[in-house]
């Protein structure tokens, strides 16, 4: 059995969807389920999968939880299974990223209480999307084709040590003018995970380790990354 940073528990349609997306981004992934038939089904589709009794902590340790695994996805259709798995995994590794799906807002709270790092509510998101489709179809179309389609990427770029950007306030950056990208905001990783939108009033001073979140075509993002790494002040700040 090979080593993989990310594990998916649950081989249902949701698990397959997530696996497909991850593999599409060149991120190796393993799928586990306690259901033999499901495992056979995803194996036939070409995923790496195995049967695993998730209730046994030793088995979980064997597949790498608490050791090399960084992210697990709890995608069982049954809420109780997800809660149980989240609890077990959290006990094994306090730093593990655990992503769960929830069926309702109440179960979302339970999963958070069990130690999930992120709870995704597919129905909530879908409902909101339908609502957006009704109220402003043009924007949905645009996002669908650009950001979530093939044209534009969302990328996070770390500001390297001793970068010329350090110490500059967020508001003076004019990335949109110098590169064909839109700067959405910045995350001060040391402070919190919250995204500081570049529009919000707080004038954040950039420093090394901050993550810039930008949207743009892949080429431009690569150019920006390159310039940041080489710390080309003339390009980044314009003289």
């Amino acid at each position: 059995m090979g080593r993989s940073d990310s594990l998916i528990f649950g081989c249902g349609p949701m698990g397959q969807e997530v696996a497909e997306q991850l593999i599409g981004r060149k991120l190796p992934v393993y799928m586990y389920s306690s259901d033999l038939d499901r495992v056979a089904e995803v194996l036939a589709k070409g995923f790496d999968a195995a049967v695993l009794d998730y209730t046994d902590d030793d088995k979980l340790r064997q597949v790498g939880i608490g050791e090399w695994v960084k992210v697990i996805f709890c995608l069982f259709p049954e809420e109780a299974k997800n809660v149980f798995l989240t609890l077990s995994a959290r006990a094994l590794d306090p730093d593990l990223k655990i992503i769960c799906v929830s069926e309702s807002s109440q179960s979302g709270q339970k999963l958070f209480a069990a130690g999930a790092s992120k709870v995704i509510d597919p129905y909530e998101i879908s409902g909101r999307k339908v609502h957006e489709l009704i109220t402003r179809p043009m924007i949905v179309d645009m996002l669908e084709h650009t950001v979530f389609g093939k044209h534009l990427d969302i990328a996070e770029i770390e500001i390297p040590l001793d970068s010329c950007l350090s110490g500059n306030p967020l508001s003076i950056l004019d990335l949109g003018g110098r590169y064909n990208v839109v700067l959405m905001g910045v995350v001060d990783v040391e402070m919190s995970d919250r995204l500081i939108f570049s529009t919000s009033g707080v004038d954040h001073k950039l420093d090394a380790g901050d993550m810039l979140v930008v949207i743009g075509p892949a080429v431009e993002i690569t150019r920006l990354k390159g310039d940041l790494e080489e710390d080309r002040t003339d390009q980044l700040l314009g003289g």
Binding site: M14, V18, L22, V71, I120, P122, I125
Partner: peptide
């Protein structure tokens, strides 16, 4: 949608 955001998260 779950697949998309999950992949992005990793």
């Amino acid at each position: 949608i779950v697949g998309l955001i999950a992949a992005e998260y990793v």
